[in-house]
Simulated assay, not measured.
Amino acid sequence: MENKISELNRLLLAVKEVMDDSGVALINSVIEQCKAVVIEGIMPEHNETIRFAEKIGFIKQGQKKLHLLISGRYFLELNKESMYDLLPAQKNYILRTCFLHGHFREETLFLLYKFSPDYKDNTFRWSAIDDTPLKVEGWFIERLIELGLLIPMESGFEISSQYINAVSAFLDEGKGWTLESFEQYLAEKKEVGDIAERAVFAYESERLAGLGCEVEAKCIRIISRLRVNAGYDIESFDNAAPGINYNRFIEVKGAKSPFIRFFWTENEMTIAKKLGKNYWIYFQGGIDAKNGVINNDPLLFQDPLNTLMKDADITNTPQGLIIQGKMKGVEVSKPIKK
């Protein structure tokens, strides 16, 4: 988008001003409202901002109307004082959900692969002199500068220190993906696996929201379908994370029985050892798929190699361990998330 991303605030504030109770606004009314506000003496092409907002899932366009979607509403909620400049929380949200994940993920990965690690200064840099051409449109780079991810240098760019860890993890995501392993993973997925992941995702969202970490709660993601060899299923946060760098990596185990019984692979144990206290197992028992309910809250195990292993019955197999125990989560009755 040639327009600044901050134009989303002008657009969505205009939608909020003229929309009805169902979140629907006439496009012409929205554009007129946008034109009524001049910022920095600039009057951009508002239709371009509308197309961008639709592309990233903030609004839906149809029959000369704009529908404000959940992501757009949340972006507005982060702007409690109705500012036109992007707030830090808005930048983090856009960066994580639209560039490091979401619509522009592949373009961002393609761009950042051209950056080289600078171990002395603990950053990533790209030089027009030493590195291969970026081959991306200028507006894309400008938007990443606006969001604070890229810092211009004399002959190139470097990654902002705030996002070094997030970018490092992001670049590592591309390693080891194959269509073969992806299809094999899907074929082996058990009935309760997807249900357990959705339940844990909802649990984590509620946990972080309860800590007042609303941006982090919106940025949790299930990565198991894309990174079949990651050794965990969900990326989350312990609490507030200003650098939007994931620091809680959750392997989800599900079962119909409320009592612990699951298989832990060699790869998952290797990753658990590497991540230490940042690695968690969430055991989601009590899944009743037939009746569409979950009868127990998940059990949480941080650094399971040093905690769970002490209290569980363990059976060795050539592929990994069968973990069993008499523990179960608090009894509840929750509908299965769709």
Score class of each variant (00 low, 15 high):
Glu2Asn: 15
Asn3Ile: 11
Lys4Met: 12
Ser6Met: 10
Leu8Ala: 11
Met19Ser: 15
Ser22Val: 11
Val24Met: 12
Val24Cys: 08
Val24Thr: 12
Ile27His: 13
Ile27Tyr: 00
Asn28Pro: 03
Cys34Glu: 09
Lys35Glu: 15
Lys35Met: 11
Glu40Gln: 06
Ile42His: 15
Pro44Arg: 09
Thr49Phe: 02
Lys55Gln: 14
His67Trp: 14
His67Asn: 13
Leu69Phe: 10
Glu81Tyr: 08
Tyr84Val: 09
Leu86Phe: 02
Leu87Ala: 11
Cys98His: 05
Glu107Ile: 01
Phe110Gly: 00
Leu111Gln: 01
Pro117Phe: 03
Asn122Ser: 15
Arg125Val: 10
Asp131Met: 00
Thr132Lys: 13
Pro133Cys: 00
Glu137Cys: 10
Trp139Arg: 05
Glu142Leu: 11
Glu142Pro: 00
Ile145Asp: 01
Leu149Tyr: 04
Ile151Trp: 04
Met153Ile: 10
Glu154Gln: 15
Ser155Lys: 07
Glu158Pro: 00
Asn165Leu: 07
Ala169Ile: 06
Leu171Tyr: 05
Asp172Pro: 00
Lys175His: 11
Glu180Trp: 04
Glu183Asn: 14
Gln184Ser: 13
Glu188Arg: 14
Glu188Asp: 10
Glu191Ala: 02
Asp194Gln: 12
Glu197Leu: 02
Glu197Asn: 00
Ala202Tyr: 02
Ser205Leu: 04
Leu211Trp: 01
Lys218Glu: 15
Arg221Glu: 14
Ile223Ser: 09
Tyr232Ile: 07
Asn239Met: 11
Ala240Trp: 09
Ala240Met: 11
Ala240Glu: 13
Asn245Trp: 01
Lys253Gly: 02
Ala255Trp: 01
Pro258Gly: 01
Ile260Ala: 03
Asn267Phe: 09
Lys274His: 09
Leu275Arg: 13
Tyr282Lys: 03
Gly285Trp: 07
Ile287Lys: 02
Asp288Val: 04
Ile294Phe: 04
Asn296Ile: 00
Asp303Glu: 15
Leu305Val: 08
Met309His: 10
Met309Asn: 06
Ala312Trp: 03
Gly320Ser: 10
Gly320Trp: 05
Ile323Phe: 08
Ser333Val: 09
